Amino acid sequence: MPHRIFVTGATGNQGGAVIRALFDLNDSSIQVSGLTRDSNTPRAQQLAAKYPALKLSPVGFPPNAATEKRHGKDFIDAAISNGVKVFVQTTVDRGPDSDTNPTKVSHFISKFNIEKHLIRRTSEEGSKMTFTILRPTVFMENFGGGFMTKLMATAMRDSLPADLEVQMVAANDIGWFGAQALTRPEDARYQNQSISLAGDCLTYEEIQRIHQEVCGTSVPTTYSAVTWAVSVLVKELPMTLQSFVEDGFSADVQELWRVNPGLKTFRKWLEARKPS
């Protein structure tokens, strides 16, 4: 019997990583469909060309926290109504109290509310759908180059305590755990579990040192005034960084390494991105 899997955000970092991990399983019984903003974009076309068996469907995605929460709850309700067996939701790590702490960050709060809706609906009498909640920490892709890397590095340098260890995860590793949860729903490791994800834990100074050793340059930064101006306009940035300080991180990196020995450290992630 075919194993049908539906992946939202198919051309995004996380959705695309889940699709790659699913096809890497080389299981002909798995049929993958993806939802994306626009199936005609170059990224969507590249994905379709690489995986001819993939079916892509276009749909608009929520632009803000309020609509993210509404769409997330609607997806959960629709999944239950249509007999979906397992629902894997990626949200965000919010520290050791992630189960009860929505934080002060609006796009963290919306994900917290989606989690609670998923847990409540799957626990209702008659529900046959199980869930896995994956909570990524800071994306290593934030240090992949461009203005966002400069902004993130500068904000971390200026705002975080020097001794604060930031947990980080590569998008491909989120995809690996997503594929495992989708294809092994009866595994106690995943069934009705919430798992924070990280492959490394580093201070800002360690991030800079490793980047220098691997790439020959420090992580690029920008002027502090630029970061300050962006923070005034986009208040989520300073609030997110403050959440790192106040709420911390909760991924059990050693246990995650035991489950997936291929998990990437920041160094390995950088080395994999270097031109051959």
Rank of each mutant, 00 (worst) to 15 (best):
K73V: 15
W257C: 13
F131P: 02
A53Y: 05
F108P: 03
A65V: 12
S159Q: 05
Q45A: 14
V138E: 12
R209D: 03
N192C: 09
Y51M: 10
L35P: 06
N113P: 00
F61C: 13
Y223V: 11
T36N: 07
L233H: 00
A171Y: 08
G175F: 08
P52S: 08
A48K: 15
Q193L: 08
T100Y: 12
P58F: 11
S194T: 07
T149F: 04
H3Y: 11
R209S: 12
F147P: 01
E68H: 06
S28Y: 01
T137I: 14
P161R: 09
S231M: 10
V226Q: 05
P238W: 12
D173C: 09
E205W: 03
W176D: 02
A251R: 00
A66Y: 09
Q208H: 04
P42Y: 02
V259A: 07
F108R: 01
T183P: 00
I109C: 04
T90S: 14
A66L: 14
A188C: 05
T203M: 10
V92F: 07
L35S: 07
Q31A: 13
G178P: 06
F266Q: 01
E186C: 06
T203N: 10
V84F: 10
I119H: 00
V232I: 15
M129H: 03
S29K: 06
T103N: 07
H107W: 02
A155D: 04
A17L: 11
F108M: 07
I5G: 13
A65G: 07
G178V: 04
K235G: 10
T132G: 04
M1Y: 04
K104T: 14
Q45Y: 03
D24G: 08
A17F: 10
F139S: 13
M152W: 07
T227P: 09
Y204A: 06
P102Y: 04
V32E: 00
F23R: 05
F249E: 01
G126I: 12
F6M: 08
P275D: 00
G95V: 14
V219A: 12
S250I: 03
T41E: 01
I133Y: 05
I195E: 00
I210L: 14
E255T: 06
R189F: 10
Q208I: 05
L241H: 01
I207H: 02
T8C: 11
V245W: 09
V138I: 14
M168D: 03
R4F: 14
I133W: 09
K116D: 04
R273W: 06
R189H: 02
F139N: 00
L47Q: 08
D77H: 09
C201L: 12
L35M: 13
S28P: 08
R157V: 14
T240G: 08
S39P: 11
P136A: 12
I207T: 09
K150M: 14
P63T: 12
S276Y: 00
V166H: 04
T217A: 07
S194A: 14
A49G: 10
E124R: 01
D74F: 12
A272P: 05
Y190V: 07
S194E: 00
S28I: 08
T217I: 13
I80P: 09
T221F: 12
A10E: 00
M140T: 00
R209A: 13
E141V: 15
K73Y: 08
D158T: 15
L164M: 07
S28V: 12
Q89R: 08
Q254W: 02
G146Q: 02
W257D: 02
S194C: 11
A53N: 09
T100V: 15
G199K: 03
